[in-house]
């Protein structure tokens, strides 16, 4: 450890270098360990505990919370919790899919603008994303209210009972989710579209490929790096989303996020809440692992 080294113009020893480096490192590391890693691990411990009579935590080891997560309650098996977990996956999946479908035209449109105005269009996509999510969500609540044109139109077409609104409903949740996450797909996709090699598209057209085939064989593969980032940035947060289903979904369309929130507020059942959180974390990690395998060369940030 005491051998001398030259570290970028500085004559020093590894021990000295580490000692100084620790001053830079430790504050942030201790902060993150103390307020995220250790609390996260205590969440694991908590999920094996039990809820006491008054909502306090009783430290008696059992697996009941996980049994409940799989649907085994005091009244036998019911699909309710599994349904909530699957619904969260499904909502995240549909949101991502709709975002992709809408992001392609938008990314191509922006890329086709002259360079001078291109960043202006790009800014137009990002600005709503910087607006507080609570505000955007309640705005949709208003837009989907019974006496607004959208609901009136649906009422007129007979899709909706007179005087009924379009929220709370699954549709409202999807609309809220798509508007919340669309910029996350458009931004990385745009960076791929901007670097697209158009000669491949021309070649495909010269060889009489149909439009659909041109898209899927000459364009789609080239945009995959950006698309992968967009999918990750949408799918993972969409699974744990809590504000949008809470404000737009109503009591019948609960997602995992709402279930967790209920355990920590209304039901005061922290151990069960911890178990549900870990369920969500496992789904997130699986998602990330899939991403690592598919898109290794893509930077997240």
């Amino acid at each position: 450890m005491n051998r001398l080294i030259v570290w970028f113009g500085e004559l020093t020893t590894p021990a000295q270098l580490y000692r100084r480096g620790l001053w830079f490192l430790l504050p942030a590391v201790i902060w993150i360990l103390g307020l995220l890693v250790i609390p996260g691990l205590s969440l694991v411990a908590l999920s094996f505990a039990e809820r006491g009579q008054y909502g306090e935590v009783v430290w008696r080891f059992n697996l009941e919370n996980y049994a409940r997560l799989l649907g085994y309650g005091i009244f036998g098996w019911s699909p309710d919790t599994i349904l909530i977990l699957l619904r969260s996956l499904w909502v995240a999946f549909v949101t991502t899919l709709v975002c992709i479908v809408l992001a392609y035209p938008l990314a191509f449109f922006i890329a086709s603008r002259p360079p001078r105005t291109r960043y202006l269009w790009l800014a137009l996509v990002i600005i709503p994303f910087w607006t507080n999510l609570v505000i955007r969500t309640y705005a949709w609540q208003m837009l989907l209210a019974p006496d607004f044109p959208f609901a009136k139109l649906a009422q007129g077409l007979g899709l909706l009972a007179p005087d009924a609104g379009l929220y709370p409903s699954p549709l409202a949740v999807y609309i809220g989710m798509v508007t919340a996450f669309l910029p996350f797909v458009v931004m990385p996709l745009f960076s791929s579209v901007e670097r697209l090699d158009w000669s491949l598209v021309e070649a495909a057209q010269d060889l009489y490929a149909s439009r659909i085939r041109t898209f899927f064989q000459a364009v789609w593969p080239q945009t995959l790096p950006g698309l992968t980032v967009g999918v990750i940035l949408t799918f993972i947060p969409a699974m744990g989303m809590f504000v949008i289903p809470d404000l737009l979904g109503g009591a019948k369309y609960l997602l995992v996020g709402n279930l967790i929130q209920q355990q920590f507020y209304a039901s005061r059942d922290w151990p069960y809440g911890a178990a549900v959180s870990l369920g969500l974390m496992v789904m997130t990690l699986i998602g990330l692992a899939l991403y690592r395998r598919r898109g290794k060369d893509v930077d997240l940030v």
Partner: peptide
């Protein structure tokens, strides 16, 4: 960056 914010929040509540 990758922890869903609801889990983040719940972990803080416990801490």
């Amino acid at each position: 960056v990758v922890t869903p914010d609801i889990i983040f929040a719940v972990a803080l509540v416990v801490a």
